[in-house]
Nucleic acid binder design. Sequence first.
DNA 1: TTTTGACTTTTTTAATAGTTTGGTCAAAAA
DNA 2: TTTTTGACCAAACTATTAAAAAAGTCAAAA
Lengths: 209, 209
Amino acid sequence: MAEIDKKREQIIESAIRRFSHFGVQKTTMNEIADDIAVSQPSLYYYFPDKTSIIVAVVEKVSNDYFEELEKILAETECLKDIFFQIIEFRRNFVKKFFMMHLTDSSADAIIRDNCDEILQESRLREIKIVAGILNSAIEKGEIAEIDAENVSAIYLDSLTGLCMWIISKNQKNIFPESKHWDAMVARQRELAEIFLKSLKYKDRSTCKV
Amino acid sequence: MAEIDKKREQIIESAIRRFSHFGVQKTTMNEIADDIAVSQPSLYYYFPDKTSIIVAVVEKVSNDYFEELEKILAETECLKDIFFQIIEFRRNFVKKFFMMHLTDSSADAIIRDNCDEILQESRLREIKIVAGILNSAIEKGEIAEIDAENVSAIYLDSLTGLCMWIISKNQKNIFPESKHWDAMVARQRELAEIFLKSLKYKDRSTCKV
DNA sequence: TTTTGACTTTTTTAATAGTTTGGTCAAAAA
DNA sequence: TTTTTGACCAAACTATTAAAAAAGTCAAAA
């Protein structure tokens, strides 16, 4: 790897560490510079501003998530197991965001203005991946024929929604306790089972069953 | 109705009107007092403090919701129609909250500390109502036997989650545009259809279908 | 190409005074 | 006794300012 990329990675790692401990707002450029033992102007040689470091961090966390995801897709067969694994990975992904205070109102504007595109692309990428899983299950005759991409979107949006709702509902202190993360995962699993069940059958008219 | 209750209702109505226009924070006790043509101390004769007015407003909005809900339960037969109606009523309910700025971070603490119980009870009440709908559908043989209360909870939590997620995702300005409310309702309907489909069938083992 | 000391500019923070608003009370009115 | 109010206080919010800290720049050196 080029020397410059190595330094960039060091910076991102330091940023993630500090963001996780103290939050984005309370991490200064000087502190990051000190971590990798260079002066502040050197830091600006590798990243034009603080925002671009934040963006790089979000990109890394997102990429790590998809890397994990690809792994289990290669290993896991059973649809339910895949769904449950995804829920588990998502828990860790969101937790990282929380720990770095990326969801705080103070950091909200920066994230909105600069990471929106990444997060939107990540959403679409994930939808496509799950749609792919569904499509291959359709091919194998495991589930009924459906609009895989659409069902995937509904499913993933519902998972994200459950996460926001359950966590925000319990977030009286700054950090959700682990039991709340567990409650969220439990609900997400129940939803997954309902989706899996509906996937197994061909459609019927829904009125006056 | 007792005279004192009449005045209390006038106060709540004025509060709702002002909250909807200017938000909770920017509505003063004096303004409410002027609206019903009494002095400020008179207002405090009917409500001990501003918080209790906010609580009363939340209670009223919540009760209005359930009143509407009970109506369609008496009139509507088809499960899908009921589900879609509920989604429509929920849209209006949440919109009211948004308009009054009850979900703003500025008002958040007051709501959290004082309306939490009401909202939690409302959630349970709604879960019970939908569970009742499901149970009567089970009795009629329209849907498979399930743990109605649990499915109801998953469903309603998912709806609430979708609402939070889709609205917050698009909320760059203070108010979500009507197209975002429409997008939310559309997604909620799609989720409802998936739930309805899964309800129609008896359970099967989910692994290695 | 990479690094840095010395620098400027922009944001935060802290303290302050001034204003508004929430809330109280004793006394009057009904 | 129930309801209303003028006069009042205390707490919360706003605006202003100065000081501190952080972000960001640049010419020159390694």
